[in-house]
């Protein structure tokens, strides 16, 4: 594999030495561009107390291209689909090379706190959300309790 750019090395070091509260991100030993991420569901959201697994990959063009991030844990959220793909502007056209792994993960955490059913990725979830929000939130809580459990 090609040598790792300094930026990725430094970002990784800083992520480990100065972690974001509620988020962990460690590079895989086999491929230092691939990260295993865990994220705590934000307080006073339907995802509270859940611990979600994600995977994050830094493509060759990073930081000129956004990292690829995906939820591995099942989650009931209008902007996250069955495959765990995330609909978030900064992961697409609004990416900026001044953003970092850290900031992107914080944005995703913020998305959990404020779902946006008007720009859906999972259409069925978004419909539920718009029709009956309290019920959708209940389902999200159920899913969180069922799938996003802490591992021993």
């Amino acid at each position: 594999m090609a040598a790792l750019p300094k930026r990725i090395i430094k970002e990784t070091e800083r992520l480990i030495s100065d972690p974001v509260p509620g988020i962990t991100a460690y590079p895989d030993e086999a491929n230092l561009r691939a990260f295993t991420v865990t994220m705590n569901g934000p307080d006073s959201s339907p995802y509270e107390k859940g611990i979600f697994d994600l995977e994050l990959y830094l493509p060759d063009d990073y930081p000129m291209c956004p990292p690829k991030v995906r939820f591995l844990t099942k989650i009931y959220h209008p902007n996250i689909d069955k495959l765990g793909r995330i609909c978030l502007d900064v992961l697409k056209d609004n990416w900026s090379p001044a953003l970092q792994i850290r900031t992107i993960l914080l944005s995703i955490q913020a998305l959990l706190a404020s779902p946006n059913p008007d720009d859906p990725l999972a259409n069925d979830v978004a419909d539920d959300w718009k029709k009956d929000e309290p019920k959708a939130i209940e389902v999200a809580k159920e899913w969180t309790a069922k799938y996003a459990k802490a591992k021993e």
Binding site: P5, R7, K10, P63, P97, A98
Partner: peptide
Amino acid sequence: NPIECPICFL
């Protein structure tokens, strides 16, 4: 007294 470029971190 170099400065770090905020994008490439060099």
